[in-house]
């Protein structure tokens, strides 16, 4: 079968100790049996490893940081599209999603660039500080949470929470605090990096399990694969993991997709307590960095997302292989200074 040619732009090319999902997404796309995908990388920093992975990424362009706003991003994408004729764009960072969601219609109408992202309402209602309301709305267990804006609020937390509790940043980072001093320290550390507010969450005892999933925006779960981390870095990132057979997790995922009519990719982070209850602790509105495990287990989620973005009918996956593992590793690429110079000065490579 002749594969259809398609140009896909992907962000999240940092593949460091807290890896972005870009490279795993690219690997899934390149594994496609139906599409001959040419990858256009979009980077924020000249040292993102994906920029130099020429066997995976045909060309990379620097794009402005999310804080520069939608106009700067749109202007840059106009330029990139004038050269590359992008068919589909897949953003992979939480922090950039707001801009891409806001620009989605303009990108499609003006430049013909399609995407398949959560709606702005979905993006907002699953924010960490809105998660308790999200749980109530869709009948899902959520650990008790509170949003705080000042370090002074920590001293009174004992009235509502018992230690340990979890101190979370609005986009990334979470640390378990065993007393108010630790909570204060984490408040400063996380807020200096990701800003305010900080989310305080009840600590749920149990095993963390995650699901990578894709929703079609009409209530159907196109694919879902649950995973348990087997090896965790000091940043809490999975360095090895294994697919699980867990009917309860799958039921909860399908319920969430159906009730919220979730559109696009997501990662559900959950805790299964020793009593067997499942608590949703976070929804990331994008693919996780371990999404290639789903591809390896028989569900190519990045390819499914590409088809959804192109407006094709996608049949939901019905199975995946249990007991499939991923083991991550780091790899030293040898790069020429000339390439670093080119991306640093010209903003494209």
């Amino acid at each position: 079968m002749k594969r259809k040619k398609v140009n896909v732009a992907v962000t999240g090319l940092n593949n460091v100790d807290s890896p972005g999902p870009g490279i795993p997404v690219v690997r899934g796309l390149l594994d496609s049996k139906e599409y001959d995908v040419r990858i256009i990388g979009l980077s924020y920093d000249a040292l993102e490893p994906g920029i130099y992975m020429h066997e995976l990424i045909a060309k990379t362009y620097q794009i402005p940081l999310p804080s520069a706003g939608q106009n700067s991003l749109m202007e840059r994408l106009r330029y990139i599209n004038s050269i590359e004729k992008i068919d589909v764009i897949i953003p992979n960072f939480d922090a950039e999603l707001f801009n891409f969601i806001k620009l989605a219609d303009t990108l499609e109408m003006e430049l013909g660039i399609r995407s398949f992202l959560p709606t702005l309402e979905q993006f907002e209602e699953r924010q960490k500080y809105n998660l308790p309301e999200f749980g109530k709305k869709y009948d899902i267990n959520i650990p008790k949470s509170k949003t705080i804006h000042s370090v002074a609020e920590i001293k009174n937390l004992y009235q509502e929470f018992t230690y340990p509790l979890v101190v979370k940043g609005k986009f990334y980072d979470a640390s378990v605090a065993y007393n108010a001093d630790q909570a204060t320290s984490y408040f400063h550390k996380i807020s200096s990096k990701w800003g305010l507010p900080i989310i305080i969450q009840e600590f749920a005892y149990g095993t963390e399990v995650n699901v990578t999933a894709v929703g079609d925006g009409r209530g159907n779960t196109i694919g879902a694969v649950p995973m348990r981390k087997q090896f965790i870095t000091d940043k809490g990132k999975a360095w090895a993991g294994i697919t699980l057979e867990d009917g309860d997790l799958m039921d909860l995922t399908r319920k969430l997709m159906k009730n919220s009519k979730w559109k696009g990719p997501c990662e559900l982070e959950m805790i299964r307590t020793n009593e067997g209850e499942i608590y949703l602790i976070e929804i990331n509105p994008r693919f996780p960095a371990w999404v290639y495990l789903a591809v390896g287990a028989g569900q190519n989620h990045p390819e499914a997302l590409l088809k959804l973005a192109l407006g094709e009918k996608v049949k939901p996956f019905t199975k995946y292989e249990t007991g499939k593992m991923f083991i991550r590793y780091s790899y030293d690429m040898i790069c020429d200074l000339k390439e670093f110079e080119t991306i640093s000065t010209l903003g494209e490579l």
């Binding site: 095993t207 995973m227 699980l244 867990d246 249990t322 007991g323």
Partner: peptide
């Protein structure tokens, strides 16, 4: 029923990943 038991004595619980 779902426990995988190999002839080498390797036991895998697909529900927990253990």
């Amino acid at each position: 029923k779902n426990i995988a038991l190999s002839d080498t004595g390797f036991v895998f619980n697909p529900a927990s990943g253990d």
